[in-house]
Amino acid sequence: MTLPTDDLLAGLASELGRTLQASSLQLVTAESCSGGWIAKVMTDIAGSSAFFDCGMVVYSYEAKQRLLGVRAQTLEAFGAVSRETVLEMVSGALVNSGAGIAVAVTGIAGPGGGSDDKPVGSVWIGWKRRGGYAHAQLFHFHGDRDAIRRQTVSAALNGLLAQL
């Protein structure tokens, strides 16, 4: 397994920034297990206000509900690390921002917190354009906490580029 390097993530972010700007779109992020890392790599770019609207780091159930409108019933029935939750997160990010495209991530970065059904490294990523349909994908990343988070950021950025 080759981990995404800082340079690779910076390159993906730069490419995404140029693509967003060319599309006259701004990005919003809703991040749980990545802890704001997607927003960080995007805003490391000088002039990122041209394509980055805002980012929300939502670890607790309460924050997911309050900031993104994730329903308590969804969290109770499926848990935070689920397709249903990430779809509500990505939709809520668009509702609560001025952005035209969103990415949301929720997962288990470890080292603890995993289960048989949702082992460490399970990460749901959702993408949505304003006025479009949300898409979500489950990933199973490997490695330590840092490695899982790096892979999450890379997959999120690549998914955004694919959406555009």
Score class of each variant (00 low, 15 high):
G98Y: 08
P111S: 09
G110P: 06
V123F: 11
F139A: 06
S14G: 13
A39C: 07
S14N: 13
S97D: 01
G98Q: 15
S24V: 13
F141K: 10
S82W: 01
P119H: 09
A30H: 13
A30W: 01
A22W: 05
D146W: 02
Q26W: 15
R129P: 05
A50D: 11
L9Q: 04
L12A: 02
Q21S: 14
I125K: 07
M42I: 12
Q21A: 14
T29G: 06
D116L: 11
C54A: 12
H135I: 15
G121D: 02
G112W: 11
L8Y: 03
L12N: 02
T19W: 03
V57W: 00
S49C: 14
A99M: 04
S32L: 02
A93F: 09
A30Q: 08
C54Y: 07
G159A: 02
G113Y: 09
F78E: 05
V95T: 14
N96C: 08
G36M: 03
L12P: 11
Q65F: 04
R129F: 13
E88V: 09
F141E: 03
G100H: 04
H135D: 14
L8H: 07
G114Q: 02
Q73P: 00
G113I: 08
D116W: 06
M42E: 10
L9F: 02
F52C: 00
